[in-house]
Design a protein around this nucleic acid. Sequence first.
DNA 1: TTTACAAGGCTTGCTACGCAAGGTAACGTC
DNA 2: GACGTTACCTTGCGTAGCAAGCCTTGTAAA
Lengths: 115, 115
Amino acid sequence: MVEPHSAGEKIATNLRKGVLEFCVLALLSRREMYGLELANALVERGLTASEGSLYPLLARMREAGEVETRWESPQGARARRYYAVTDAGRAQLELFEEVWGEISGQVERVLKEQS
Amino acid sequence: MVEPHSAGEKIATNLRKGVLEFCVLALLSRREMYGLELANALVERGLTASEGSLYPLLARMREAGEVETRWESPQGARARRYYAVTDAGRAQLELFEEVWGEISGQVERVLKEQS
DNA sequence: TTTACAAGGCTTGCTACGCAAGGTAACGTC
DNA sequence: GACGTTACCTTGCGTAGCAAGCCTTGTAAA
């Protein structure tokens, strides 16, 4: 795990840009989740630093039609907004997988050639 | 290759953030290169869209001491500024390889779990 | 009852990176 | 001397992630 406030964390922050959105789509394509649940799953994997990135992102994705939401109010607990991926979201995810494959492949190649 | 101006190119632009700097270091650790030469090598690999990202980046890296430069004036050609990686640059590259391994590994995992 | 704490949602202000477009200067060629 | 090319660099912009914090609701303790 990368320690907080380190130089490595600065590198990680930039690497996460443009990745988070599609990790959200990937997680949601298994099952719907609510905000904090998503945030925890992503923090565990080192894919985001906090909910500070997640909620604005979810709002953008909702506007773009990649996810849709419904409220659920469990007894004796705060209401939760659940997010589910749409068909448009699934299409975006597929596109991402393609682009990710190309770019990450090129990065690996450049890193290996260099030794 | 990702077509220009497409939705895929938008994804790629975000994926490139924070990657370009270390691809430059990796390329330079094989041999020193001048600006346009670097730019062409990176565009070929799909790791940047144009020199518009590269020159400001090189200036930042010079200030940070990750690269050092010297001018060369070949006969019958414009002067070229050659870039070479420093020890500090090599240290940064090693750190990047670590962080890249962690994050790209997690991305792969999330993408695979999802099918 | 009121204080504290946790879960859950969201906002604000900021930084930094990549990009498109354009600008400048030196060199060779016609 | 006009033009295309090579090579350097700048300007203005959009946007994503982050830290820090705010508000509400519910539970539990004092």
